[in-house]
Nucleic acid binder design. Sequence first.
DNA 1: GTACCTATAC
Length: 611
Amino acid sequence: MNISRLLSNSHFPLVPPHIRLPLVWTRGLAAHHSNDLHLPIPTEASSILATKLVTSYFHRGRLEQARKLFDEIPNRDVVLWTAMISGYTSRGLYSNAWAVFCQMTSQGMDPNEFTISSVLKACKGMESCSCGLMVHGLALKHGLDGCIYVENTLMDMYATCCPSMDDAYMVFRHIREKNAVSWTTMITGYTHRGDVYGGLQVFRRMIQEGVDLNPFSCSIAIRACASIGIPSFGKQMHVMVIKCGFDFNLPVANSLLDMYCRCNSLSEAKRYFHEIPQKDLITWNTLIAGYEKSGSDWSLNLFLHMLSEGLSPNCFTFTSVIAACANLALLNCGEQIHGGIFQRGLQGNLPLDNALIDMYAKCGCVDDSRRIFDEMPQRDLVSWTSMMMGYGTHGYGKEAIGLFNKMLDSGIRPDQIVFMGVLSACSHAGLVSEGLNYFNSMATNYHVTPNQEIYGCVVDLLGRAGRIKEAYQLIEAMPFKPDVSVWSALLGACKAHGDSNLGRLAAQKILSLRPNGADTYVILSNIYAADGKWGEFAKVRKLMRGIGCKKEAGVSWIEVGNQVYSFVVGDKVGSHIEMVYRGLEMLVQHMKEVGNDLDSDCLLHLLEDES
DNA sequence: GTACCTATAC
């Protein structure tokens, strides 16, 4: 590179026209670029140029050139050192930034407030509280701790790297003139570590002290309200945001929309969605995800609407709509969307691949799930768990166990959800002793403490195998008060194996925890019916009518061609009903042929309205 | 010539 050409290049506006370069320096820089070393003698002007060059190199990602130039300059001043530290920090190379800082101090160069804030950002990036503490000490020694930049970065470093917010709060308390950054840093410090109420308290104090709000602090606070799930908090935020005039700032609007979805106020979400004048992809994705989580097939309608508006879906969109297909068991639709994912080259996105595994498994195509699983460039705990769950629900217990062992070999540590996957797979495949072995070794071998849901899985494991008394003993020996899921597992087992005594007990426990649970009454009455206790059966049904609880009709649906047909028990309406009954007859015939015992009780309820 | 927080969707 020719330095004079460089300086005359209008695309390189680094050197102001009033700076005249010393000849020797120009020669030196030229030598730098031609690898012919003649070190320049720096002057103040040349130091400014060097700093500008270093900053520009970092900005354009030419890190090696920045380093080479820096290394060749003999008497670097503090600004140049700082440019180097901040350059590395801006590129995420925090250890390099730290190394330059150490080199600088060891050479006796004193830092200024710019250096301290830059290197503190590197400490934050390294998540090193000890390095941060050293820098804090140095800042105090040089009297730089009163600068707002230093105070804000100190706070951020402590908030990110320390186990508690105490140190960050200490710095915050001592800031005389807090600015918007100080407040935002404090709020995100709390919310990023999951202390939502802590963050909201700081936000409230910000309002009380009359600090000007900005869209950033508002969207963070709205997110906090969404994660609490209390609609009244969110409503207050909405009112406040309107007062500030931020209600149609897109990130603020999107976080409000998300808040309504997470607070289960879907109608509010829908209304607000239509009010937002200019929507972006995130706006659409947020509402699609909201509908999907609530189990509504409107997520798919909205997806089509979005496409018709000419928007291009991304990984977030596809993850939601694939999840919708999974939960509605719409294989045909899921496959078409998978085609769209392929077309756009989005396969390989981790959450999306995980959703695809789940979708194919829930649509009955566990082999396709496995294919996706095998082709994934990377896998996380969710990938392994989804695949195991897929195997489990299809009765492939051995495959699930094989996968669990493979997961351990790959160095991933299991959590409670993985154990739920393995245990439920064992349960569905009748692998009782294997399941019990896993349960008994969870805490000792894998340091995972069983929770209520795990106990529920083991009760289910024993119960399905007909070992109902042992299941009950396990419930009695549980280290915590059994919840509805545990008793429900026992009740299910009692229904399957006709144990009306324990069934009554389980039902009573469930009703004491969740009164008016119509499904519990129905199962209990069915247990009595199967046991021939018709008097008890009648009593339960009468009790149900007396308290006015009515079981919601269970809806089934089937996808034929491009159409989804839904039907309820005893359905006689609709042109497709005849086809449904014909399908049912075919299934019954097939079950007889393969030697499956028909549960006559079950069949009876398929044909008659039980509610 | 060098510095702080910065939000929303899986």
